[in-house]
Design a protein around this nucleic acid. Structure first.
Lengths: 362, 362
DNA sequence: TTGTACGCGTTATCAC
DNA sequence: GTGATAACGCGTACAA
């Protein structure tokens, strides 16, 4: 039974009511009698009619789509956020369009295309470092928010909405923590040399801490990922640690710039017969749920993932609402007014999660 | 600078060419002179025009949308598949619409709505147990494939496309493996009592193995998750194991029906001072990447995740293509012809990944 | 309160 | 090879 194409016209005919009235019934207009509405609803239910979104979008110029562009979907840290984005979208009656951006692609480029194609209401840039060429970003008509992105410089981001942590500061705190625990030679497992995203910020934080403690950075202890795409993987953590151990360099602590890296690291140390934490302390970054269950459990800097994801969506939704209001007022479109944007800039704080992988000598 | 709305009409005016010709240029029609095409492209590039998808969809009745409905997004096993779905979609020029289905919701219900709303070209049901009320499924006009779903009964699924493993068989193999390793009292960490999905199948496999080995199932060793939503979590694995240990029941092996559960289990045993594998063997199910890096590394049944995800997409795309051809032929719509569907039914095999968490006494 | 008629941006069909 | 025009399904100004 080839399901006959069900349009609002059909429903109108079937219920003996005009198209416009049916439309009003569907959209809960105020000027419609309860009785008519009921009748329409009946027919709709009976035939399982669902409005054609394309037509609706065309007319309303509102597709109720929110896109999440994620760079490095391999990082479990991001996938846990996805859950919340998805929940928040559906609860606000938006659809979530998920788009993975290759390591080499420019997120803004992809966003620009997607925006028009899908009539996006809003965009979440998750991870990466959206090249801050304001020209490209200005092309975006939809509001957008950077989530968990490398805020290299508050000033550079002054005109943008973002939700993140201060990667530099937190990484410095992590390294400070290791020093406080009595570690002297701290290695770092970090991103590749070309990285301009959170990876490089966390490295900076590490270096800052070193300087503060009067230590010279030792290039033998700075382990850089070979491949940009595979930075935040267990495998990378394993390899980097193996290389470090084999290099013969001396170290009594390792700072892995992500938990996923730390997990590989722990295993590598174990395979080398190096005990954690008695011989080497390991500390991660992110606060993945799994860290608690590892053996040894992972000391890490916990990011408030859920709160961050929620804050991002809240900011985005607020910006969308504001945009809608502006358009209703007929006030000039333009970009986000600078004075307002501050409301949508949030730097969350991490918290050190002290667990077994880090020895404390004090 | 409120970006002026760019339509094909504008482009036509701007380039001094008619709308229809511009349209042809955009869509690479054959009957268009290279020269005109070039000129059009120039203007398009200059102004950054992107066609309005809603209008296009409305006309073509093809939104190029593929939806993935996932039940239990918490399971990392699924998120790793998501990556591949996403990749496969974009490479075939589809958009991926991600929709999370609550534990209590009916997937087919959600699909039916989404299908019309978004003019879906295809649907992937990921996980869960889409209630096989053929009535509801028949309402779906778009092709769909069940991925990693509980194929309770081949006959029941005979009319549907699916890609899965034989959960019952594989779980039986896992349990057999434990017996072969010399274990005698094998506990299982499984889903809640109401579960009718992969959880119950894996339990069945376990029971089958027991029977085969002449063992009576011991209810003290069957640890059921308390909450359906949180079954496949580390926390659940931890709690169930704790409860098991505290119950005083004797056991020398634990079969966790997912790796995520096993991870919590390993930690709980450790916290109870029970050594793995010398005192208790633990084996997981799924073959998550992380299992290799755990301490002890996790013996598990590895599912060919990537292949399964790819096969699902391939099946779906093939079905979509077939559907399109049918429509072109004008042949009767209807559901998938039963004779053909077999091509889209695949049961993959798992492989035992022997690692440290399981002791072998032979 | 309800119905008629038009237009949203695009592509396909037809003339030329 | 190109241009005019009618749809696609819906929401809404306007008329009734």
């Amino acid at each position: 039974m080839a399901a006959k194409k069900l349009t609002i016209k059909e429903i109108a005919k079937l219920s003996g009511i005009s198209v416009s009235t049916v439309s009003r019934a569907i959209n809960n207009h105020y000027d419609i009698s309860p009785e008519t509405k009921r009748r329409v609803q009946e027919v709709i239910d009976k035939y399982g009619y669902v409005p054609n979104n394309s037509a609706r979008n065309l007319k309303l110029n509102d597709a109720r789509n929110i896109a999440v562009l994620v760079k490095g979907i391999t990082n479990p840290f991001f996938t846990s956020m996805l859950r919340i984005f998805e929940r928040e979208c559906t609860s606000h009656n938006y659809s979530l369009v998920l788009e993975h951006v290759e390591e080499t692609q420019d997120m803004t480029e992809v966003a620009a295309l997607l925006e028009k194609e899908k009539r996006l209401n809003g965009i979440v840039f998750l991870g990466g470092n959206p090249v801050l060429s304001s020209k490209r970003l200005k092309r975006l008509a939809a509001p957008y928010v950077f989530c968990s992105v490398a805020v290299t410089d508050r000033k550079k981001f002054s005109r943008y909405a973002y939700v993140s942590i201060d990667d530099r500061k937190e990484a410095e705190a992590v390294t400070d923590y290791l020093f406080a625990c009595g570690r002297k030679r701290i290695a770092i497992l970090c991103a590749d040399r070309q990285d301009i995203s959170i990876g490089s910020l966390r490295l900076e934080g590490y270096l800052n801490s070193l300087k503060k403690h009067g230590m010279e950075p030792d290039s033998a202890l700075i382990c850089r990922s070979k491949s940009a795409e595979r930075t935040y993987t267990h495998e990378n953590g394993y390899q980097l640690t193996m290389d470090l151990v084999r290099s013969g360099a001396e170290f009594d602590a390792i700072f892995a710039i992500s938990d996923s890296i730390a997990i590989g690291c722990l295993r590598a140390l174990r395979d080398c017969g190096i005990d954690v934490p008695s011989q080497v302390s390991v500390v991660g970054f992110d606060g993945l749920d799994i860290g608690r269950y590892l053996v040894p459990s992972l000391t890490t800097l916990k990011q408030p993932v859920d709160e961050m994801a929620e804050a991002s969506m809240q900011a985005l939704l607020a910006m969308i609402a504001q945009r809608d209001r502006q358009e209703a007022d007929g006030s000039a479109g333009g970009s986000n007014p600078v004075e307002e944007i501050g409301k949508y800039q949030q730097i969350f704080s991490g918290t050190m999660q002290e667990r077994e992988s880090c020895r404390k000598d004090y």
